[in-house]
Design a binder for these strands. Structure first.
Length: 376
RNA sequence: GGGGAGAUACCAAAGUGGCCAACUGGGGCAGACUGUAAAUCUGCUGGCGUACGCCUUCGUAGGUUCGAAUCCUGCUCUCCCCA
């Protein structure tokens, strides 16, 4: 057993739990900072651990496969050792790149052939070699190779795509069960439930994935262009279909408000590039709302970045100073904003856990979401 | 004192009779960003208007012309060379 539920909100599907891995225990609901290429952009591990309180981070199979390549990661003794991160890690399979690098790939029954965005070289991911690759990278949780369909896909295409994802999933599972971890610790495998915005397809996908009896289940193909309400609707459709004793991971989501709404609908794990990417682009998330720190209105605001913030950057730097750094193009600007946002995201899920345990999550969430969506 | 070059919007810099409210870059202002091809991308940047548009602009004062940032004259200022 890798998941233990420890609290359930009375008024919603929100719950608290623990995920046990050989690199440590993860408290859920949790947000996982994204470290695609083996780096959470702009953030030292020390800060990730001590200031942001990250419990698990992501890597990406496609990106790591291309650079530095499996040979180097293997020689290093796996990704944990290569990047000096001793806490849990999860790798995405590259299914999202099937979607985001659509112009550079070709999908067949066998797998997905890519043109490298770096040098144009040709590579093929099959369900089998993708599992092997993730074995070699050595993440604690590895993901199925899937096709992530756009949010506006037609039903007919979404169905065809889902069927392929399901056949790939079966091959992933078979291969996963026939192979062993390379570095002496257990790896868990999560199927990805696709089906676009169509309840019948989501149901079909969930039932199929659950029948394969895996360690946890991911919900993919959301936050890829569909209306936010559709995303919430799909999570609600899936709720009764996924086992309650396994963790649920909503891939690629999202804003702090999206995360609280996801938690209310029973999601345990989230990841998103938003805190780092938007941070680099001058956007800060706070309990009071969202700030575009590059705006002139902050030029003479000498108050702290976030008076309610938990990060040392919140206690150290002022809005006026951070705006100055952004306007001047200083790299410290991106670092401070990323640090703040990640610390904020982790504090959002921490607060959520506290309120679930206290039993007042649903009412607290409604008030919090309204503020989080405000533009300051 | 003599000779030469030049003055264009916040800055730099194109434009040398109508296609010019004026290329382009910087700066400024705003927006986007959701399993990271992103320390990226987009829009606006004389005034009013959502917009067709209207009004005021290319040192300054006049002039030529149907029409001028562009041609002519005076003036002011700047830079370079010689003495």
């Amino acid at each position: 057993m890798i998941f233990e539920k420890i609290a359930q909100d009375a008024q919603s599907n929100a719950r608290c739990g623990l995920i046990y891995t050989n690199h440590g225990v993860i408290e859920t609901p949790i947000f996982m900072p994204v470290g695609t290429i083996g780096s959470v952009k702009g953030i030292y591990h020390k800060d990730l651990k001590e200031d942001i309180n990250a419990q698990i981070i992501l890597g990406n199979t496609y990106h790591l496969f291309l650079r530095p390549g499996l040979n180097i990661i293997n020689k290093a003794g796996g990704l944990h050792k290569f990047i000096s991160w001793d806490k849990p890690m999860l790798t995405d399979s590259g299914g999202f790149q099937v979607f985001s690098l659509a112009a550079n790939r070709k999908i067949t029954e066998e797998g997905c052939t890519f043109r490298s965005h770096i040098d144009g070289s040709k590579h093929t991911f099959t369900p089998e070699n993708n599992v092997d690759t993730q074995r070699m990278i050595g993440a604690d949780i590895i993901m199925a190779l899937d096709e992530c369909t756009p949010g506006d896909a037609e039903h007919s295409y979404a169905l065809k795509s889902l069927k392929l994802t399901q056949r790939w999933l079966e091959r992933c599972v078979t291969h996963f069960d026939n192979t062993q971890p390379l570095y002496g610790y257990k790896q868990f495998f999560f199927p990805i439930v696709q089906g676009c915005v169509y309840p019948d397809l989501r149901k079909m996908a969930a039932e199929h994935a659950v029948s394969l009896n895996r360690d946890g289940y991911a919900i993919g193909g959301l936050s890829v262009g569909e209306p936010t309400e559709k995303m919430y609707e799909m999570i609600e459709v899936l709720h009764p279909l996924l086992p309650l004793d396994k963790p649920r991971y909503l891939m690629g989501v999202g804003t702090p408000a999206n995360i609280l709404e996801g938690i209310a609908r029973g999601i345990d794990m989230f990841d998103c590039v938003m805190p780092t990417r938007n941070g680099r682009n001058g956007m800060l998330f706070t309990w009071e709302g969202m700030i575009n720190i590059r705006n002139k209105k902050w030029a003479e605001d000498f108050s702290l970045i976030d008076s309610l913030g938990t990060s040392f950057v919140d206690r150290t730097y002022t809005k006026a100073y951070l705006r100055h750094l952004f306007v001047a193009g200083e790299m410290l600007a991106a670092q401070i904003a990323s640090e703040h946002n990640l610390a904020f995201y982790l504090s959002v899920v921490k607060e959520a856990r506290m309120h679930i345990k206290a039993g007042d999550f649903a009412t607290w969430k409604t008030v919090a979401v309204k503020k989080l969506e405000t533009k300051l």
